[in-house]
Design a binder for these strands. Structure first.
Length: 272
DNA sequence: CACGCCTCCTGTGCGC
DNA sequence: TGCGCACAGGAGGCGT
């Protein structure tokens, strides 16, 4: 079985990019600006960035959030294939930010799913997922009892709940499959009791923290600012492993669709 | 409100 | 060899 894999940036990948960008961008001023006007709705008020100073480079879930002077914020989402580099721009460059140190930060995004917005600080009305984003999974705000209660209230498949960004921020297709595999929960399960919720809470933290240590998962598209790949791919147990033996029980891993997303799980270990 | 389905995009890989 | 098409998927939007 052959599966096409992209390796979309999720929390560990965005955090790895953030760690590389922060020292380069903090304190820099944007002195020139270009962006591809297509598709128009993925670039919002970007012109406001001209002349602004980047105060910090932070992250919420899969969003990069850069406070600017003048009480503005630059909000970036890498979509499926977004990446940054300090030039040179190629045919897939969607935005170019000229800095006051003479360098140019290039936002490259072949599939154009990324988004760039400049907003008044904290005003996420135009970015609804960010406005309603759940707690950071690696912070104390990610409360196990609140998570368990929210899962109990949810009638959606547990994987859909994880991807929804409201119960917890930053989990995407890769780490949802990994955390569910570790806790032996079937991705389509609509009933997750407190014991399994507690285990899932811990597993989400583990898979994300381990991947951050390895600077993320690279299949093809994701790369860091310096062009390096993440090193987490060889450690995946579920995502992309369809047809291969389950690392726990040896049963062939199965691929299905849950929440309109490709989903790999062990049909023997993972029970609803 | 919660849930689920459709859409946006384009490179890739497969079948014929 | 070349063509056509299915597939990958985060988030936004909309219908139920």
């Amino acid at each position: 079985m052959r599966v096409t894999l992209a390796g979309v940036p999720e929390l560990p990948e965005v955090e790895s990019v953030r760690r590389q960008l922060a020292p380069e961008l903090t304190g820099r001023r944007v002195v020139s600006l270009w962006w591809d006007p297509h598709p128009e709705q993925r670039f919002s008020d970007v012109a406001l960035l001209e002349g602004r100073r980047i105060e910090r480079v932070t992250r919420r879930g899969k969003y990069l959030v850069c406070p600017l002077d003048e009480d503005l914020e630059l909000v970036l989402h890498l979509g499926m294939t977004g990446s940054f580099s300090f030039g040179p721009a190629d045919a897939y460059a969607r935005a170019r930010f000229g800095l006051d140190d003479g360098r140019e930060l290039v936002f490259r995004d072949p599939r154009r799913f990324g988004r760039v917005s400049v907003v008044e600080a904290g005003d996420y009305a135009g970015i609804p997922t960010l406005a309603a984003l759940g707690p950071e999974p690696l912070s104390d705000d990610f409360d196990v009892d609140a998570f368990a209660a929210a899962l109990r209230r949810s009638n959606a498949p547990v994987k859909a709940a994880l991807l929804g960004q409201r119960l917890v921020a930053g989990v995407g297709n890769i780490y949802a499959d990994e955390a569910l595999w570790r806790t032996r929960i079937h991705p389509a399960s609509r009933r997750v009791g407190p014991g399994r919720a507690r285990a899932l809470h811990a597993a989400i933290r583990e898979v994300l923290a381990e991947s951050i240590e390895r600077e993320g998962t690279t299949f093809r598209d994701y790369q860091m600012v310096n062009g390096d790949s993440g090193r987490n791919a060889p450690f995946l147990s579920a995502y992309g492993q369809a047809g291969l033996p389950c690392p726990r029980c040896g049963t062939a891993m199965r691929k299905t669709v849950v929440a309109q997303r490709g989903t790999t799980y062990c049909p023997r270990c993972q029970r609803t």
